[in-house]
C-alpha cells in the first residue's frame, strides 16, 4: 500500500544554509521522510525536498514530542568526535575525544549531557557512543 508520511507544521521561519536544506515559512505543512537523530529531518513540502531542523516543526496531529525518550539520569557514555564551543548559556564546551554521559536524547539534536558536575546541551552530531568505531 501507499506509505503515509507524518505531517508537521513549521512553527517558525527557517532560512536554509546549504543546498540540501529547504526554507520554511511559519505555517508550512511538510511531510517527514526521514528523522535523523542529529536533529535534521528530511522532508518534502510542495515540490521541494531537503533537510530542516526538527525543532522548527510541530506534529499536525497528536501530542507534541510524542516520540521523545525519557531522560536517563544514569547516563549513557559517549565520546566527542568534534570539539564544540558553547554559544549559549545552557550549552557546554568540550574538546575532541572527551568522554561524557548523555542524560536526555532530545529529538531536536541537542542532547543534555553531563561532564563531572556540569550539565548542559551539546550537539548530538558531535557525539558517538563510547566503544563504537567510527
Amino acid at each position: 500500500g501507499p506509505i503515509i508520511l507524518d505531517t508537521y507544521r513549521a512553527m517558525a521561519d527557517f532560512t536554509k544554509t546549504s543546498k540540501h536544506e529547504i526554507n520554511l515559512r511559519v505555517g508550512d505543512l511538510v511531510e517527514i521522510v526521514e528523522k535523523s537523530q542529529n536533529g535534521w529531518w528530511f522532508c518534502q513540502c510542495d515540490s521541494h525536498r531537503g533537510w530542516v531542523p526538527a525543532s522548527y516543526l510541530e506534529p499536525l496531529d497528536g501530542p507534541e514530542e510524542a516520540e521523545e525518550a525519557e531522560p536517563n539520569y544514569a547516563g549513557e557514555h559517549h565520546v566527542t568526535v568534534k570539539a564544540y564551543k558553547a554559544e549559549q548559556g545552557d550549552e557546554i564546551s568540550l574538546e575532541l575525544g572527551e568522554t561524557i554521559e548523555v542524560i536526555h536524547k532530545l529529538l531536536d539534536g541537542w542532547w543534555v549531557i553531563r561532564k563531572g558536575e556540569e550539565t548542559g546541551y551539546f550537539p548530538s552530531t558531535f557525539l558517538q557512543k563510547a566503544g563504537k568505531k567510527e
Binding site: 546549504s18 526538527a54 522548527y56
Partner: peptide, 22 residues
Amino acid sequence: SIKNPPQNPPPRPPVEVRRKRV
C-alpha cells in the same frame, strides 16, 4: 535520493518556539 543529513548542528529552537513549549 536522500543525502546524508548535514553534519553541522541544527540551529537551536527559535525563541518563539521555546516560549510555546514552556
